[in-house]
């Protein structure tokens, strides 16, 4: 692990030291046809971008240096960042997801301007534990030039990650964007001998409801003594996993450690006759309603903690 990191850092260090790579000419000049295609597709109606005196929409800056459909791999110029990507791929960090893109516009561009761009690697950070898997954040900068005049810059950051195995690949949610580095999840339940069976069950993909070993009554949250018959003999039933939203909140403020707002917490009534609290995930916050049918799912929050959560039942 350390050797691997040392190797990656050495490759990256060299690439960072190399500074800006060769200036590459944009395949097309700033032109009206590409602009109007873009404004049409985006639904952009700003009059600045039309007519004989049009300027280019600033957010198009990267479009000008896109290589297009029939790019020729042999003619492609090698960039400093390529060494780093190759080293990461070889180490198994084959997944890729972009996390940040920041443009700075020095001026707007006129029709007919011919651009070049230069790229330099600026940072690599990792390994970080993320929702997608362990990975490295790689950051580079691109500067666009008209002649020798810098006209725009871009900072771009992406995560190269080692994909997790399929069992935990259902990580798509929990309002967790790709870039959220997964430290140990901070909101941990206290567990004791009266409640451990529930959390053990969740780890095994079972929603366990305490059941009295004598009178058979189901109870959640669980406790050491049956309030109905005083028995301390405890067993559990495994719930079917279906439920109905009994009430819910959409939490916005203040921020909660480990979670992104807004998120939904619901009281869910299950057909076994008890209620449980959990998050509603994979559902727009405004689509949740009292009475909504849901089913349980399990979300691994970190190496140790799994939480039961609820997703809408497909209509």
């Amino acid at each position: 692990m350390t050797d691997e990191r040392d190797h990656l850092m050495a490759v990256a260090g060299k690439a960072i030291a190399a500074g800006e790579g060769p200036r590459i000419a944009a395949p097309l000049p700033v032109n009206a046809a590409t602009i109007s295609h873009w404004t049409e597709a985006m639904g952009e109606r700003n009059p600045l971008y039309a007519g004989p005196d049009a300027v280019a929409p600033p957010a198009m800056i990267q479009v000008w240096s896109m290589e297009g459909l029939n790019r020729d791999p042999d003619r492609r110029v090698r960039l400093p960042v390529d060494d780093v990507f190759e080293a990461l791929d070889e180490a198994g960090f084959t997944g890729v997801v972009a996390t940040n893109c920041e443009h700075t516009y020095h001026r707007y561009l006129d029709l007919g301007e011919e651009l070049t761009s230069g790229t330099r690697l600026t940072d690599i950070a990792g390994p970080k534990r993320t929702a997608l898997g362990d990975g490295y954040f790689v950051t580079w900068n691109v500067t666009w030039y008209a002649g020798d005049e810098p006209v725009a810059e871009m900072m771009f950051r992406l995560l190269k990650f080692r994909p997790k195995t399929s069992a935990t690949a259902a990580d798509e949610s929990r309002n967790v964007g790709a870039e959220a580095a997964r430290e140990p999840y901070p909101l941990r339940p206290a567990v004791n001998r009266d409640t451990a069976f529930f959390w053990d069950g969740v780890r095994e993909g079972e929603l366990r409801i305490q059941k009295c070993g004598d009178c058979g009554i189901l109870r959640h949250p669980p406790g050491p003594v049956c309030p109905t018959c005083r028995s301390t003999r405890r067993t559990h039933a495994v719930a079917s996993g279906s439920g109905t939203v009994y009430s819910y909140v959409v939490h916005h403020n203040p921020p909660v450690p480990g979670l992104r707002t807004p998120f939904v917490v619901a009281v869910v009534e299950v057909p076994e006759g008890v209620r449980l609290v959990g998050n509603i995930v994979r559902c727009a916050t405004e689509d949740v309603y009292v009475g909504m049918p849901v089913r349980v799912t399990y979300q691994q929050m970190d190496d140790e903690l799994t939480l039961p959560m609820w997703i809408p039942v497909e209509a």
């Binding site: 909101l187 339940p189 206290a190 009266d194 949250p221 939490h251 917490v265």
Partner: peptide, 18 residues
């Protein structure tokens, strides 16, 4: 794992904590 800590543990992990 006091009785109150256990009680809150049914809610806090889901961010229901204010």
């Amino acid at each position: 794992p006091s009785s109150q800590g256990l009680e809150m543990s049914w809610h806090v992990p889901y961010g229901l904590m204010t």
